[in-house]
Design a protein around this nucleic acid. Structure first.
Lengths: 137, 137, 137, 137
DNA sequence: GTGGTCTAGACCACC
DNA sequence: GTGGTCTAGACCACG
């Protein structure tokens, strides 16, 4: 799959998994109706305990992003794209605010900050992140 | 004081406190030699358990940012500014990378992202965040 | 057929199927000697996996409610009516007790409860449930 | 506490725990602001694994019935009573419908059924259920 | 002490 | 094979 887990992230691992599914749906990497990797498969791939992945999937079901297809797996729901698009902005904006608040708290100059952002954006675009499909936007 | 704690941040609370001290030192809001608020004072102000604040201060001592002044309290060390300036960029860059990676993972358009960043930066600059008030208590 | 399956029932699906066969026999909708629908026919009708129906039938054979007729299918046994009549009361009483216990646990007023029961009974009698249609397929 | 778990209930154990908390709140046995038994305590009392209780509590938090008080425990929220009152009716009505459908499916006579209901209600009122506070209705 | 998270491994129901 | 549930026991953050 195309996920990347960082245990020292601050975020709970199951939360990271859930977020990345949301991102994948929002970005179109996972289409409605598509079956997500099985709990066991993804757990193995990410070197996680199946329970951890299961919890992420369970929360996504509760949010209406996934739905169980009995005996088959979990499928992305039809309404998932809208939900995830909306959630994506909310989540990214939240994290962005955090970092900007911290930057300003440390009196980082507005221009310094802007330069930093530009640099990081460029870096990410150019080298790719290794965490999502190789074909650039 | 000039801190703002968000318990749902993902970051441990003591870690948030420590970070914000670092930012304050890096930004000059706390100068070397200055005495930081007492554990119980800051705990009361932030509605935290004193143990939590104490832990943050303990870690800052271990990092050499604070040093105990007998009978007086904890003071910002002489070398703190350099340490914090260095740490500040590292911390901010790390968080910035996280958010950018997520943005890219969800295939947020480069321009959308840039617009988002601009909007948030403007928002923060303009309204202030309530988290910076250089004039001490 | 005359069954209705609710996957979110708490009860296992095969169990629901088995129960409803029992009810049908107890109520006379299925007479001794009558051939029940084939596994694949019922599975198709209820949108279930044939294995699930097969398991229900297997359990009913074990309980002596159904018996295989070579080359024909599964028939309701002669002794089935007595068994099912007996089981029916037991099962219904058990479920009734559960709901009453819950009602009482939540201190639902005796009159409220009675009103609720009356209302639901009336509703079921009047609109029919779509789950009973003695006239076979 | 005042809970009673039946592992052969069909309902998942964590679900039973959650339901009974809802019932207790709806019935006033747990008032807003009150701290529910700790995960470990309730787990010990009901002879369950703490994780099972924790899951029930987690779902109740998600539904807005409980809220964490850091380092203290989980408290019933202010809005919980309304939510639980509403949920109680829904849950009981659902189970009632199940049993009535089954009764009718088995062609239990309307009067027989009514008699059964009356008998069970009387039985429960009279002997108490042992599952909730000793003081009568 | 509290809840939250994670791991490990088991059993069940369903396809 | 799939997800769902449960148990057991560990560690962490917070009060």
């Amino acid at each position: 799959m195309f996920f990347h887990i960082d245990p020292t992230n601050g975020l709970a691992i199951y939360e990271q998994v859930a977020r990345q599914v949301v991102f994948a749906v929002a970005g179109g990497a996972l289409a409605p109706g598509e079956i997500v990797p099985s709990v066991r498969e993804l757990a193995h791939e990410l070197a996680l305990n199946p329970n951890t992945v299961a919890r992420a999937y369970r929360e996504l079901q509760a949010r209406g992003v996934l739905e169980p297809i009995r005996g088959t797996g979990l499928a992305v729901t039809q309404g998932a794209v809208a939900k995830c698009r909306e959630g994506r902005l909310r989540m990214i904006r939240a994290r962005l605010q955090q970092v900007l608040v911290e930057a300003r708290q440390s009196r980082l100059d507005h221009q310094q900050l802007q330069a930093l952002v530009q640099a990081e954006m460029a870096a990410i675009v150019e080298k790719g992140t290794g965490t999502i499909c190789p074909a650039g936007p």
